[in-house]
Amino acid sequence: MSMTDSTDGWDVLAQAGELARRGEAFALATVVWRQGPSSGKQGCRAIITGEGELRGWIGGACAEPAVIREARQALVEGTPRLLLLGSPEQFGAAVPEGMTVVPISCQSEGALQVYIEPVLPVPHLVVVGHSPMAHTLVALAGSLGWHARLVEHTELDVVTERSFVVVATQGHHDEESVEQALAARPAYVGLVGSRRRGASVLGYLADRGVAADELDRVQVPAGLDLGHVSHREIAVAILAELVRIRAARGVPPGPPEPGAAAAPDATETVDPVCGMTVEVDAPVVFEGHEYSFCCAGCRAEFLRDPGAYTKKESRC
């Protein structure tokens, strides 16, 4: 789904700041170069959400679906990319290394360069307890730019689906803290303590009716196994485990919230007229096969002589 409006570049940046403050994932697309004729201008900007909604303006009917598709993939991978949109014949071997060429050869000989930057929420760490290890863990996470805070066992209402929760209450309210944390379905729940202590806590919660699949989500003991280490080194081991989990997922921790990054749907095909990758939408059926198009121009061109394009496709 996409939605274009007359929002100018500065309004788009204001909206981007608001989305970032709310902790929502999005990509910011900016036109950095154009070759006329093209409706996109240098400095045009747009926000693309994980659901594929576009706010702003980066170009017309050919450019927009390509930018949305690449922006959603950038959100999944967490890496920026520079797109060169136009006919491959326009550029030949002159394309710089690392730039992605996307064909948009429909109604124009224009071209665009669009820089796409994914903006992902800062990780949210909640540490329950006030031990020296807990203070060290919060300080270390803060040095990475994470949003980290110490809370009491009575303050777990701050936990969301994106949170990493570490219970470090040292035997005081362990069971209550773990149960309340699990109720919020966070991305991670870890309990600081021995395996024996962990088995006791989880057994108590099982007797209270907490589902087995929920209890299986609790990491006991929390952190990478570094052997016999100090309290401060335990904090390092826990943070290392959280960094590894986040990096392996390649997306903000936790189940996706509305508007969060998600992998593009596997509903893409190739426009038989221009060769552009497009989403399947209101396809034309010809000889039992469905064909989708990037714009009305390609659709009309196909309908004028479908056989010409299907024969070309069969030769490929």
Rank of each mutant, 00 (worst) to 15 (best):
D5R: 07
D5F: 07
D5N: 13
D8Q: 11
W10Q: 13
D11M: 12
V12A: 00
A14V: 13
A14L: 15
G17I: 00
L19W: 05
L19E: 03
A20M: 08
A20W: 00
R22E: 09
A25D: 14
A27M: 03
V32I: 10
R34D: 12
G36C: 00
G40L: 01
K41T: 09
K41Y: 08
Q42H: 04
Q42M: 09
Q42L: 02
G43H: 13
C44D: 13
R45P: 03
A46V: 08
I48V: 15
E51D: 15
G52Q: 11
E53P: 09
R55I: 00
G56D: 00
G59M: 01
G60E: 07
P65V: 03
A66Q: 02
I68D: 00
I68C: 05
A71R: 01
G78Q: 08
T79Y: 07
L82Q: 10
L83K: 05
L83I: 04
L84S: 03
G86K: 08
S87L: 14
S87R: 15
Q90I: 06
A93Y: 02
A94K: 12
E97M: 04
G98R: 07
T100H: 03
V102T: 12
I104C: 13
C106G: 11
E109A: 11
L120M: 05
V122M: 02
S131A: 04
S131H: 10
S131L: 12
P132L: 08
A134M: 10
V138S: 03
V138R: 05
A141T: 06
A141W: 01
G142N: 07
L144K: 09
L144T: 04
L144G: 01
G145D: 03
H147T: 13
H147L: 11
E152N: 11
L156C: 10
S163C: 07
F164Q: 01
H172D: 14
D174S: 09
E175M: 01
E179T: 04
Q180D: 02
A181P: 03
A187I: 07
L191D: 06
V192E: 02
S194F: 01
S194A: 09
G198I: 11
S200E: 04
S200I: 10
Y204N: 14
L205H: 05
L205M: 02
A206W: 11
A206F: 08
G209N: 03
L215M: 06
D216S: 13
R217S: 14
A222H: 04
G223M: 02
L224K: 14
D225E: 11
L226C: 13
L226T: 08
H228L: 10
H228S: 14
V229I: 14
V229Q: 09
V229T: 14
H231T: 10
R232F: 06
I234L: 05
A235T: 12
V236G: 02
E241T: 10
R244L: 10
I245N: 03
R246H: 08
A248T: 13
P253Q: 13
P255A: 14
E268Y: 15
V273E: 06
V273N: 05
M276N: 09
V278F: 07
A282I: 00
A282V: 03
P283L: 04
F286N: 08
G288N: 15
G288K: 15
S292Y: 07
C295A: 14
C295Y: 05
C298E: 06
F302M: 15
L303R: 12
R304F: 04
D305T: 13
A308G: 15
K311S: 06
